[in-house]
């Protein structure tokens, strides 16, 4: 049974891994980085374990919950389904890169104000997915929001406050755009 007698993924794994490292060059939250990675390690583990960036959350490790969502070349992906070895040349944005200078991104601010986060564990993934949605669709309908977030599970909120927060974020971003255009 796959759930308990978890087979060792690498039987006889020697506890060393020097021989199969690979060098990659990525842009992470706007900064260029050259990293040595184990190619079969997941992007999620690379971020959390190797780089100590634990803002990206792990809820399942199997692509079913969306807690680990990051932006890869501007598109939302489950970082638990991406191998480090595939990342050469990748542009990655995580929750740590969402703030605009010292200011919260409107998406963050809206979730903060509207009760979009309770335990907050799904929140980073929700925020990255929302960011991706609002880039493509400035004025999503409730249906479109529900659809966009349907791969991001939340056990706390019942989604109502999250959806409200996304609507508010969209509004804030539109207003910002207008003021910027005027200014």
């Amino acid at each position: 049974m796959q759930c308990v007698a978890v087979p060792a993924i690498f039987p006889g794994w020697p506890g060393e891994r020097g021989d199969i490292n690979k060098k990659i060059r990525i842009t992470l939250n706007g900064q260029e980085r050259i990293l040595e990675v184990v190619p079969y390690r997941l992007l999620l583990d690379l971020l959390r374990d190797e780089m100590g960036m634990t803002g990206t959350k792990e809820g399942c490790g199997t692509g079913d919950c969306g807690a680990c969502t990051v932006l890869l070349h501007g598109k939302p992906v489950n970082s638990c389904l991406v191998f480090s070895g595939e990342l050469d040349g990748a542009d990655i944005v995580t929750i740590e890169g969402l703030k605009i200078g010292p200011e919260l991104h409107p998406v963050q601010d809206a979730f903060r104000q509207d009760g979009g986060a309770q335990c907050g564990y799904c929140t980073p993934g929700m925020l990255m997915m929302t960011t991706a949605l609002l880039r493509e669709n400035e004025q999503p309908t409730e249906e479109e929001i529900r659809f966009a977030l349907s791969g991001n599970l939340c056990r706390c909120t019942g989604y109502a406050k999250i959806i409200q927060a996304v609507q508010r974020a969209a509004e804030m971003m539109r207003e910002k755009k207008i003021t910027e255009a005027k200014g």
Binding site: G52, T54, E96, L98, L104, F111, A117
Partner: peptide
Amino acid sequence: ITRVDAEEKVTGSAIYGYDLV
């Protein structure tokens, strides 16, 4: 009143049990 723990949670800086090193 806005949740006082919300800012840490929306920036990803809140440390959970699963994050601890």
